[in-house]
Amino acid sequence: MSDAPLHPCLSCGACCHQFRVEFSVYELVSMGGKVPDVLAHEVNGNRWRMNGTGQHPVRCAALTGLCGQESICSIYEGRPSACRDFDMGSQRCDQARAAHGLPPIDPNWGAPLPQAA
């Protein structure tokens, strides 16, 4: 069993509850990409959106668990580019976390610990 702290994104999901996720049709499995077609719908021609992210309240169809409690993306390895490009600890991340009553992520999370003298 590891004593390593859980990565903040594996217990958060605030961004998945906050933002619309749109991406190119070419990211769909049917077009050679990795996003399952069943989890998205066409917006217009070349643009697709993750189900659940174009309505309020927002909740991405790929999310499992509850916001702030072991929320995990069920397609993490094949998530859309909009999700891959989202930066943990960014202003938008802090905004999403605040909207769900979560504190900002410590900017030093995951930094190497100082070596003892």
Results as ranks from 00 to 15, higher is better:
Met50Arg: 06
Ala61Met: 06
Met31Ser: 14
Gly65Trp: 10
Arg97Ile: 06
Ser30Gly: 03
Gln91Tyr: 03
Met50Gly: 04
Leu66Asp: 08
His17Gly: 10
Pro57Glu: 01
Thr64Arg: 15
Cys93Asn: 05
Asn51Gly: 00
Gly78Cys: 05
Pro57Gln: 01
Pro36Ser: 03
Asp94Gln: 13
Arg97Phe: 09
Val43Asn: 02
Pro80Tyr: 11
His56Thr: 13
His41Arg: 13
Asn51Asp: 14
Glu27Thr: 05
Leu63Asp: 01
Gly33Ile: 08
Pro104Glu: 02
Asp87Glu: 13
Gln91Ser: 14
Phe23Gly: 01
Gly33Thr: 05
Ile75Lys: 07
Gln69Val: 14
His100Gly: 02
Pro80Cys: 03
Asn46Val: 14
Ser81Gln: 15
Gly101Arg: 11
Met31Ile: 00
Ile72Gln: 10
Phe19Glu: 00
Asp85Ala: 13
Val38Glu: 15
Cys60Thr: 01
Ala61Leu: 03
Val38Pro: 00
Arg84Glu: 06
Ser24Thr: 08
Ser74Lys: 13
Leu28Gln: 05
Phe23Ala: 01
Leu102Asn: 03
Glu27Gln: 12
Asp85Asn: 12
Cys60Glu: 01
Pro104Trp: 06
Glu22Leu: 10
Val58Asn: 07
Pro103Asp: 03
Val35Leu: 05
Lys34Asn: 09
Arg97Gln: 04
Cys93Ser: 10
Cys67Gln: 10
Ile75Ser: 08
Arg97Cys: 04
Glu27Ile: 10
Pro36Trp: 10
Leu28Asp: 01
Asp87Asn: 13
Cys60Lys: 02
Ile72Gly: 00
Val38Met: 07
Val43Met: 08
Thr64Cys: 02
Arg20Trp: 09
Leu102Val: 04
Gln55Val: 15
Asn44Lys: 14
Met50Tyr: 04
Met88Asp: 00
Gln18Asn: 09
Gln95Thr: 11
Ser90Pro: 06
Val58Leu: 06
Phe86His: 12
Trp48Gly: 02
Phe86Val: 06
Val29Gln: 13
Val38Arg: 14
Val29Asn: 03
Glu22Gly: 00
Tyr76Phe: 15
Pro36Asp: 00
Ala96Gln: 10
Asn46Glu: 13
Gln69Trp: 06
Glu70Asn: 13
Thr53Lys: 09
Ala96Val: 09
Gln69Asn: 12
Arg20Ile: 08
Phe19Tyr: 15
Ala99Leu: 15
Glu27Phe: 12
Gly33His: 12
Asn44Ser: 11
Trp48Glu: 01
Ser90Met: 03
Ala61Pro: 04
Ser81Ala: 14
Asp85Met: 13
Phe23Tyr: 01
Leu28Glu: 00
Phe19Trp: 07
Pro36Val: 05
Ala61Ser: 15
Asp85Leu: 13
Arg47Thr: 13
Cys67Leu: 03
Gly78Arg: 09
Phe23Asn: 04
Gly68Met: 07
Pro80Asn: 05
Ser81Tyr: 10
Arg79Glu: 02
Pro57Val: 01
Arg92Phe: 13
Gly52Met: 06
Gly78Thr: 02
Glu22Asn: 05
Ala40Gly: 04
Phe23Gln: 02
Thr64Lys: 13
Lys34Cys: 06
Val25Trp: 08
Asn46His: 14
Gly78Trp: 07
Pro36Arg: 10
Thr64Tyr: 09
Glu77Ser: 14
Val25Lys: 15
Glu22Pro: 02
Met88Val: 15
Glu22Phe: 00
Gly78His: 09
Gln55Asn: 08
Arg84Pro: 00
Pro36Ile: 07
Cys73Asp: 05
Ser24Phe: 11
